[in-house]
Write a protein that binds this DNA or RNA. Structure first.
Lengths: 212, 212
DNA sequence: AATTAATACGACCGGTCGGTCTTATTTTGG
DNA sequence: CCAAAATAAGACCGACCGGTCGTATTAATT
């Protein structure tokens, strides 16, 4: 790294390593991730990885952080370009399903896979995952609250409840898409939110049928 | 095994092994399941396991089957004691959440964990999981259809859509319960279905608030 | 009671894992 | 142009993995 503000060459390679690690961990698990295989795929030596991260766990934690950044870039930021309210909520849900449907990560969803992998393993990795999930939940609830504040959803709405249901539809989408017909699965995930918002919204014309 | 119909002693030990395997695999993953650790926990030798199953994969497949049987005994059969219709649907959902809340398996849900673990790994294990999940989905849809046939749900209801949402609430429950407050999570999972059924049912008095 | 059949055991095999260390190569600064 | 410092490489370590095999113990049969 350079001492001034420029992005050092090492930071680029560092991010390339972590992108590969995210993709690989999504397929074989964050625990099943082998440093030897990761090094092979990157065409570097295994000891080179230890020069950047002092242990496998350190690299795993950095991998979680990189996955958070990818989620931000690929799903949250596009959704924030939609106008506030139910349309932004719908845009977020659609962006997430599109992300799954596009098979950006061949292994499905890094967070879904990893959270189920570590839900019975206390430790730094699960703590980091829990932290990320809490932020995601808070973000979802904030978007629902905005729609309420705009009068697009009822004032007495149970905000956390709707946020729970939205996330549930997303989680189920990525799981079922591997076991049942993907198109049917994604349609259920989309319709789940659409029907719910239409039932709640005093102005259903805001909501579009197709992907945003 | 005996040649006649009696249950041999070996079948009992076989089931005991598989029960332990289900519990262990739910914690560390069906792939991460170590035959050495399993043998240690059972206080038998590792080679003894290979006398009953010719390979690790054979034992993993038997473990999936045993988990299916546990799900049948613990969740489906109790729910079938409730009267047909929306009350049976609700009973099934409650039994599932109770099963999670009781921490019967310390690792959470065998199927949720394992399906996310194998969703990017084609092979016999994923095939077996997919088969089990298809039967589960068909069963859920059958129960919804029964409620429609009884007139307790609208005749034009999208049966598969409601089944999708019910399962989504269950999946999310077991995942979030490890990362956020469990009681809040279970309440969201219960209310998700309850609100949905109340909005759909022409006879909401059938539905009870508390656990069945 | 003696022989046979079945069973359970633990040492052992090749391979892969995370991690270390010594060596060779490249880059940098004067 | 050379010395010094940083970097990458690959051999190597102990631990654990799935799986095998010869042996000792138990159970069943006559």
């Amino acid at each position: 790294m350079t001492s001034d503000g420029r992005v050092a060459r090492g930071d680029r390679t560092r991010r390339a390593v972590l992108d590969t690690a995210v993709a690989l961990a999504t397929e074989v698990g964050l625990d099943g991730l082998s440093l030897g295989q990761l090094a092979d795929r990157l065409e570097v030596s295994k000891s080179g990885l230890f020069a950047h991260w002092r242990s496998k766990e350190a690299l795993q934690l950095a991998t979680v952080d990189r996955a958070v950044a990818q989620w931000q870039e690929r799903i949250i930021e596009p959704a924030l370009r939609a106008p506030r309210g139910v349309r932004r909520l719908q845009a977020l849900h659609e962006a997430r399903i599109d992300f799954y449907a596009a098979r950006v990560l061949p292994g499905g969803c890094f967070f879904a896979n990893t959270e189920f992998e570590y839900n019975a393993r206390p430790g730094p990795i699960r703590d980091r995952l829990a932290e990320a999930f809490q932020r995601w939940t808070a973000f979802l609830e904030r978007l629902v609250q905005e729609a309420v504040d705009l009068g697009e959803l009822p004032a007495d709405l149970d905000v956390a409840q709707l946020a729970y249901e939205i996330d549930a539809f997303g989680i189920s989408a990525v799981m079922r898409s591997r076991l049942l017909d993907p198109d049917t699965t994604y349609r259920h995930a989309r319709l789940g939110l659409l029907n719910r918002l239409r039932a709640l919204s005093p102005n259903p014309t805001l909501l579009t049928e197709g992907p945003s």
